[in-house]
């Protein structure tokens, strides 16, 4: 995996969007499954960074995580 592919994979896993299974269970990002352990350490930091940016730019001050959950609970 070259640097550009690595960055794209990390960015793909940093989105708050997660697919759901038939019973409504939240599924891990496919990109997460392709990351090796060291990159997973990097991912958790990158997710936290992106959530801060989302919080600052969202009209209600919600991170992507909070937005996903609020959408879910209706």
């Amino acid at each position: 995996m070259n640097g550009q592919e690595r960055e794209a994979l990390l960015e793909a896993a940093s989105t708050p969007y997660r697919e759901r299974d038939a019973s409504g269970g939240i599924l891990s990002s496919p990109a997460f499954m392709d990351l090796d352990p060291a990159l997973r350490d990097e991912l958790v930091l990158r997710q936290a960074w992106m959530r801060e940016v989302e919080r600052a730019l969202h009209p209600m001050g919600w991170s992507g995580t909070v937005s996903a959950v609020m959408e879910r609970i209706g």
């Binding site: 896993a13 599924l27 995580t65």
Partner: peptide, 9 residues
Amino acid sequence: VDVEVVMQE
């Protein structure tokens, strides 16, 4: 584990 999944759940 995918921490984002854990957070939302």
